[in-house]
């Protein structure tokens, strides 16, 4: 491997995503090339700076999760629950994107297991 080939791979080594099969040749080159080792140090610094800069940007706004959830659950229309606090069955009907999906859940000791969801009831 020459310096040009090595430098093409250095950013990916710095990012920690270099494929294992390319690692050996690159490390062998770096062992004997001080210039490429210095280049790697700069690559590592740049990758850390980009990561820190991106982390300084705001994340997804508060309330986004609730909006996602509302869209995946739909607007509840009705729910039928059967059973006790140990074991229960529930069936829910909701309005979601113009459809009326019917879903069923089994609840055992507080742990909910989805049973089915039928995307029925077109607009």
């Amino acid at each position: 491997m020459n310096c040009r080939e090595a430098r093409e791979l250095l950013p990916w080594l710095a990012a920690g995503t270099l494929p294992p099969e390319e690692m050996g040749g690159l490390l062998a080159h770096l062992a004997g090339c001080p210039a490429c080792r210095a280049e790697l140090a700069q690559e590592v610094r740049l990758s850390q700076e980009v990561r820190a800069a991106m982390e300084s940007l705001p994340g997804a706004p508060k309330g986004t999760w609730e909006r996602v959830l509302a869209r995946t659950r739909g607007i509840p229309i009705g729910k039928l629950e059967l059973g006790s606090f140990l074991v229960g069955l529930s069936f829910g009907l909701s309005l979601r994107g113009g459809r009326l999906p019917l879903s069923g859940e089994l609840e055992v000791l507080g742990r909910k297991v989805p049973l089915f969801e039928i995307e029925g009831g077109a607009r």
Binding site: W12, A15, T17, L18, P19, L46, S47, V50, R51, M54
Partner: peptide, 11 residues
Amino acid sequence: VVLAFYEGLSY
């Protein structure tokens, strides 16, 4: 650059 250095995706 963003995908490589921030998201950690390989080339």
